[in-house]
């Protein structure tokens, strides 16, 4: 997924970073060198890894629920145009409310347990999936729909045998975006209060001015998002069949 050229470029950027730190003699607590971050990452691996696992679990459960809710809502809205006319504009407007603002409310309503955290992740994952899936359903080629009508397909058959599989590439684009959001959502949720997780680790590191640990957490988040992204691409390649060049286009890397 990451091509050779971009890996070399990233290595180059890290090298420049390292060089600037050494030449300009920037204090460690302000901006640590990449080498120092790497050493810290290796040394604190055993204390850090439980936090990572907690975040992975949270992100995956949240993503799974978000995908299911998103797809159900998309199918429902696609199949009944009256409800769509009411709900769709509200859906769009609701996305202008930043999730971060909702978080304190969710904690007031649902406490510090798992539920408010999952709701936050769900909220960030939900929207890209609903939009992508509905776009996919709608973009089904009119020739194919006409053909299905001519051969006597019912509405249900037209949906499940034509529109649903037709939308697979779009749905997977939506899930890929949602997956990267889900890690972010999990970390934000953990900031608000949790016992374990990358978010917790970050808050602790920040309050003790361990900038190197903050960077370890940031790199962990980036790697997690990339990992999740490539897992979903892999699943996509298995599920989306027979589209050759078409399937390749939906990748963003």
């Amino acid at each position: 997924m990451l091509q050779g050229r971009s890996i070399i470029f990233i290595a180059f950027l890290l090298f420049i970073w390292e060089l600037i730190i050494r030449v300009a003699d920037i204090p460690h607590w302000l901006l640590p060198a990449p080498s120092a971050i790497m050493i810290e990452g290796i040394e604190s691996y055993s204390t850090f890894s439980p936090h990572v696992w907690a975040t992975i679990q949270l992100a995956l459960i949240g993503l799974a629920i978000g995908v299911m809710c998103g797809l159900s809502v998309a199918v429902f809205l696609h199949r009944s145009s009256t409800i769509r006319a009411f709900v769709y504009p509200i859906l769009i407007v609701s996305q202008n409310v930043p999730v971060l603002v909702l978080a304190p409310l969710l904690i007031i309503w649902f406490g510090f347990g798992l539920l408010p955290k999952l709701i936050i992740i769900c909220l960030v994952c939900f929207f890209p999936i609903v939009i992508a899936a509905m776009d996919g359903f709608r973009q089904t080629s009119p020739e194919l729909k006409h053909y299905f009508a001519m051969i006597g397909a019912t509405k249900g058959q037209t949906f499940w045998k034509l529109e649903w599989p037709y939308a697979y590439p779009s749905i997977f684009s939506g899930i890929k975006i949602a997956a990267t959001y889900s890690v972010m959502g999990a970390v934000i949720a953990e900031w608000l209060g949790a016992k374990k997780g990358i978010g917790v680790y970050m808050t602790l590191a920040q309050s003790s001015f361990r900038t190197d640990r903050v960077f370890v957490a940031i790199f962990a988040i980036v790697l997690l998002s990339l990992l999740l992204f490539s897992v979903i691409r892999f699943v996509e390649k298995l599920v989306v069949k027979g589209r050759g060049a078409h399937a390749e286009h939906s990748g963003h890397f």
């Binding site: 020739e143 194919l144 006409h146 053909y147 009508a149 001519m150 051969i151 006597g152 397909a153 045998k161 034509l162 599989p165 697979y168 989306v240 069949k241 027979g242 589209r243 078409h246």
Partner: peptide, 16 residues
Amino acid sequence: TGIIGYMPQQPCLLPW
């Protein structure tokens, strides 16, 4: 619908 056999102008095969 579905009484006649139909062949459209475009092949209309399902790519998947």
